[in-house]
Structures are given as structure tokens and as C-alpha cells.
Amino acid sequence: MIKSMIKSKLFWPIVVLVLILLFNLFFDRGFFSIEVRGGHLVGSLIDILNRGAPLMLISIGMTLVIATKGIDLGVGSVIAMSGAIGAMSVAGAADDSILPLFTAIGLSVGICVLAGAWNGLLVSRVGVQPIVATLILMVAGRGIAQLITGGQITTVYYEPYSYIGGGYLFLLPFSIFIVAAVFAIAMFLTRKTAIGLFIESVGSNPDASRLSGINSKNIILMVYIFSGFCAAIGGLILSSNVASADGNNAGLWYELDAILAVVIGGTSLMGGRFFLMGTLVGALIIQSLTTTIYSVGVPTEYNLVVKAIVVLIVCLLQSPEFRKRLTGAFGSKKGVKSTKDKGVTLS
């Protein structure tokens, strides 16, 4: 039964994704074609994967945060910080040395992990609501990013830096491998260790989890750190893509897109069960929407409007109240839940 539920959680997002892609085919017969050009695979689908990489990364981190009944509004600012640190630390580096690249990655990831830890500590140790705690970094982080770049858009002339977001490996964009690696790490940690179970239990009932001997504080700290990590890498990819750092605009709205991807993927904002695969599909839906809007020739201005409508539709579809109003036929299915009513009288 659970398996079929997970299936159904993934089912609709995939249907939506396929529909969006098919819609593109309608306008552009060559949409699905992929060809090898200059040693790279080129095509719209590859392009969606490549451009969607930062969002997928950030959404993976966000999924775990949301599963603990939290939210990380700071990711957009962390992206800006990461890009700023990365770009600034390779500024003026010579192309022939690869060392500055690793310094940049190390510094970015290190500092953003600290930023994540800061959020995690505020939430788990000080006990501030997640939406509030991460709001601080959302506001201040962008200021810090601008502080690092001196308020300028800093351009990077160091070639190896561009490889992170623009390089190719085995015909495919390197960023896809980064996503695959981070996704694999997340899957391993949550499904092959007890961390996944603990995240779901902390998100579903923190008090009961503590009384069952689970250190929920460390779990919460961990997910925010992981979210910071994901945002750091996403930020590096974004900054590397454009070979520059923009403290003001880099990663703008990413927290919202990431939350949207998580929700589309079937993870509830109320915490508990999470679906990493669903999140990936959700992120791809958002990216293909954007791509579609560009390729179909709709003015890009409509992008935000379309996103808004998608958010609303997805949320409405997940709302039990809406479903109830939509069809009375679903009522019989709810019969199982009658035990819930009983639970009220029993306790």
C-alpha cells in the first residue's frame, strides 16, 4: 500500500513533466533530438538538465529541511555568498594552476556550511521557528555577498572556474554529474542509514522522537548544514556558468523555486515523509517550464505568472479541502480515515 502511495506521489509530477515536454514537441519537432556536436551532447533535454542543475541541488537540500518541518529561506542568499566567495578567491588566478579552483571550492563550501550550521543552531538549539531563523540569513546574507564583491558584478577570467558549471565530462555537462553525486549522497544517507528514518520521525513528531532516544537537535542541525552545502555547490555552478559573481541578483528567488520543487515532488510542508526523487522531478518541471516559455516564444515576463499559477494548482491539488470540493467520489476513499475521528473520541 505504501509502495503504491509512493508511486502515486511520483506519478503526477512525472505526468506533468512529460506533458510539458510533449507540449514543446508540438512547437519544435526537434525538441527531443540530441546530437553530438564538438564532443558534447547537445539538445533541449540536455539543456534542461544542465540549467536545472543548481535548482535540483538546492531542492535536494531543501527537501530534507522541509521533512523536518523546517524551511530554509536563506538558500538564495547562500548561493550569492558562495558565488561571491568563489569568484573573489579565483580573481586574478593564473589559468595554468588548478590550485585556486580547489581553494575557491573549499572556501565557498566551508563558509556556506557554516552558514547552514548557523541556521541549524538557531532552529535546533535556540528554538527559533525555521521560517524566522532563516529569514535573518535571507536578509543579511545578500548584504554579506555584496560586501564580499564590493557591490560590483565581479567577472572571473580564470578558465578552470568555468568548468564547474560549463564543462563537459563523457559528452555530458559536468553539472549533471555534480547533481548525480549529491543526489547519490543524499539517497545513501537517507535510505541506507538511519538518518532518513530519524528525519521523518523528527519532522512528524519531535517530542516523541526525543523520548524515543533520538537526538533531534543534531538531526535538525545536520539538514540545515546539508542545505547550506547544496546551496554552496549550486552557487558555484551558477557563478561559474556566467563566470562572474553578482551579490545582488545571484540566486534571487531560488529559495522559492526550491520550495516549489519540493512541494511539487510530493513532500508536505508539514514535515514527515519526503521524496527526493519527486523533488528532482519537481525541479525539472520548473526548469522545463522556464525553458518552454523561452522556446515557445512567450515573452519571458510571463514566466513568473505561469509559475504562480503552477504553485497554486499544485497546492490546491494537495489540499484535502480542495479535493473534497472537486469530487464527492473521493469521499469513499476517505473511509479509511474514519479511525482518525475515532481517535479523537478515544483519547
Binding site: S201, L211, I214
Partner: peptide, 18 residues
């Protein structure tokens, strides 16, 4: 309700939690 069950988890997961 508040300090015992983890509502979103299965019977199995609730059992092995501790």
C-alpha cells in the same frame, strides 16, 4: 498522541525507532 506515536510513519518504523 503528543509524545508517543510518529503519525506519518508505519507500524514497523514506529516499532524499531527506539
Amino acid at each position: 498522541k503528543a509524545e508517543g506515536i510518529i503519525p506519518e510513519l508505519t507500524i514497523r518504523e514506529n516499532m524499531i525507532l527506539a
